[in-house]
Nucleic acid binder design. Structure first.
Lengths: 221, 221
DNA sequence: TAGCTAACGTACTGGTTCGTACATTAGCTA
DNA sequence: TAGCTAATGTACGAACCAGTACGTTAGCTA
């Protein structure tokens, strides 16, 4: 077929370990997010890759470890976004609002991440437990929240004596629910929480809620 | 063992359609909540029932319809709880807090329901869409919220002009996240959001948050 | 350029799992 | 009490799917 002294009958087969692994992770992320852990098909992931199923086992070991790798990368992305956050120059109220908006935006822009986290919760966070990377992450956002809260409380602006982890939970819950429960909420109440036309509405609602909570006048204990 | 002229050598085989169906639904609820839709095993459900797999197909048609039936019943339970809610005699602030606490309590007491909803969201709410019952539910809580909001806004107590569906989303998000994301949140931040010792803390936090949002002094638009 | 190894492909298998064909019986009704 | 039917049980099949045994080659290195 191919003449003898042509460049190479390489048959399109190019070797690039890093690219192959990244491609597997990309496709696996979509497939796991689409169908859940048990619903995802290793064969389907392989088929949508330029490589074969053999490579998934070669690089990742198995379906379980592949899902763990997918989770690790997804959490890495949000951790990076949080690290890029710069609110030191803002007053506490503006800083908290900015932080909440970052979470809001990230969740909205990464529905696959939300789905992966939901899936991981169905499975009792066993992959996080099995991952060395994920064990010692400790969201950079937490440190930021801690500093803002301290400043706000010291200045008397913030009346609530929340702790950083709880405030993070409060912010996350709103952002997470909006994306994670979009389908059932839409089906039951006929309202699309991720409707682009309502985006600013909900973004403001989140900020208003958090600020109101932090600055509310408390009844004396 | 059994003497000859005793009632009947019925071999333990008792016929009770309603009981059989209810038992299948109970076990199926647990199994789906445990493992997700695709992770759940029809054989496992049958094994943990006093009947056989045959009966699952006889009464429900298939795995898909069984899951739909499980969802319908789970939503029915929360709808009933909402209907028992009586807050007409309370002032708007107390009424909203009571309503939020009902949601908080129900979510905490029904983690299986939360998991089912998470699973249904992974699957794009396709079973809700396929269910006639679930199509026209429209949470009774919504009507209650509507009335409380109207009273609160009319009296000037509530400054926020939220609508009932959005407020319901806000309350639900906190309650839902706390239960649904318990595993990953605990694994990543070392804090158990469903720790009984912290129950009152979070319950109060939810109420404070919602009331603060509704009664906050708004900056003039 | 010989040779080595990481990177890749093919073809298969063993176990699992949803669903069903076929047989049976409890318990009501005429 | 004969007979009918809803309700139940058993055994099996066909498809699917995670994982692997075995073979091949690109491209670097001595």
């Amino acid at each position: 077929m191919t003449s003898v002294d042509e460049p190479a009958p390489t048959n399109g087969r190019i070797r690039d370990a890093a690219r192959t692994q990244a491609e597997i992770l990309d496709v696996a992320t979509q497939e796991f997010a689409r169908a859940g852990y048990d619903g995802a098909r290793v064969d389907e992931i392989a088929a949508r890759t330029r490589t074969t199923k053999r490579m998934i086992y070669y690089y990742f070991g198995g379906k379980e470890q592949l899902f763990t790798a997918v989770l690790e990368r997804a959490y890495g992305v949000i951790r990076e976004a949080e690290q890029r956050l710069d609110v030191e120059h803002l007053d506490p109220v503006a800083a908290i609002r900015r932080l909440a908006e970052l979470t809001f935006d990230h969740h909205e822009q990464h529905p696959d991440f939300i789905r992966l986290v939901s899936i991981e919760n169905i499975h009792g966070a066993e992959h996080i437990a099995a991952s060395e990377k994920l064990g010692r992450i400790g969201s950079p956002a937490l440190e930021v929240i801690r500093r803002i809260l301290a400043a706000g409380q010291e200045s008397g602006l913030f009346t609530a004596d929340v702790d950083a982890v709880d405030l993070h939970a409060m912010i996350s819950s709103f952002c997470f629910f909006r994306v994670a429960n979009r389908a059932t909420f839409g089906a039951l109440f006929g309202r699309d929480l991720v409707d682009p036309a309502q985006r600013e509405h909900y973004r403001a609602m989140l900020g208003d809620m958090v600020i109101a909570y932090l600055t509310a006048e408390r009844a004396a204990g």
